[in-house]
Design a protein around this nucleic acid. Structure first.
Lengths: 157, 157
DNA sequence: ACTACATAGTGAAGTCACTTCACGATATGC
DNA sequence: GCATATCGTGAAGTGACTTCACTATGTAGT
């Protein structure tokens, strides 16, 4: 006998879909990681930049909440990004304990490039599919995401 | 002005779908990580166990190829799994350089639990959806996965 | 105003996944 | 036999995390 999978056992559509989700998570995660490495940084650091691009300047605490990591970790990520000249730490106008983090012009340029890459990828993946099919696809994804969040209430917004 | 996103700009279905894929990657990745942590191990180690469960005993080199990591890394992951009594290293019958890695009974028990959890999750996510809709969903996922692999030829099988 | 407590950021120390490089032990081709 | 490729691992290093302790500051409560 070779393995437990010599018996096909016909997975059923629910399991087949979930297995595809696992596969996609793996492939897309790897692609993102490689894409960021090509641009000279890591996924975690790029995530911080993206949060700042998306929501504007904020404190490190807010950044930690937005990215779902500890404040201490944000400190380290920002140290690296600041070294690269992509973000700037300024004094918070009203709270002298806090630091206000914002994108530098170079950081804005970088995130604009990210956004462009995302739009390119979206076109490459889905441009030829009928909008109606895509809408159903996205709706099913939303359903799955919602239910996944219910399974693990620790997930962030 | 608050942020760049005050202008809704109607993303379009392709970008909306891709953004959902990103979101799903994040949520599902977090869920898997937490699930493994609850069971006392990490994602990377569980991936090794799953590969052994799926494909049977193999050398560390084959394991490295299967998981898409360096052989050196496999050594470390196996050290930990062996410590936990989940895998066993045996001498390869014909090649005295190689080590044959297999699941212990405890390891088989563990992976059986993983498989059960996966099937439960599949039911929880998708059991109430019509099979036809799930088939279309999975087909669209396959399409996306294929195209993603084309973008980054470094991706593994 | 003074004490009490919560909060913002960071140093220290540690874990885990991962890498590259070097090395000893085998296998293999000619 | 001898060159050469391959298998696993030690050594050393990076990056993303964590927890814990500590300082500096804001926010009450009386």
């Amino acid at each position: 006998m070779k393995s437990l999978h010599d018996m096909p056992e016909r997975p059923g559509p629910a399991r087949a879909s979930l297995d595809r989700l696992f596969e996609l998570t793996e492939v897309l995660g790897a692609l993102m990681q490689r894409g960021m490495a090509d641009r000279g940084l890591t996924l975690a650091r790029a995530g911080v930049l993206w949060a700042l691009f998306h929501d504007g300047p904020m404190t490190q605490r807010a950044l930690a909440a937005a990215r779902g990591v500890t404040p201490r970790n944000v400190t380290g990520l920002l140290d690296a990004l600041q070294e690269e000249g992509l973000v700037a730490r300024e004094a918070h106008p009203t709270d002298r304990r806090a630091t206000l983090v914002s994108l530098t012009p170079k950081g804005r340029e970088f995130t604009a490039g990210l956004r462009g890459g995302r739009d390119e990828l979206a076109a490459l993946l889905f441009a030829d599919l009928p909008p109606e099919r895509l809408d159903t696809f996205a709706a099913t994804l939303v359903l799955a995401i919602e239910r996944l969040k219910d399974v693990d209430p620790t997930a962030h917004a």
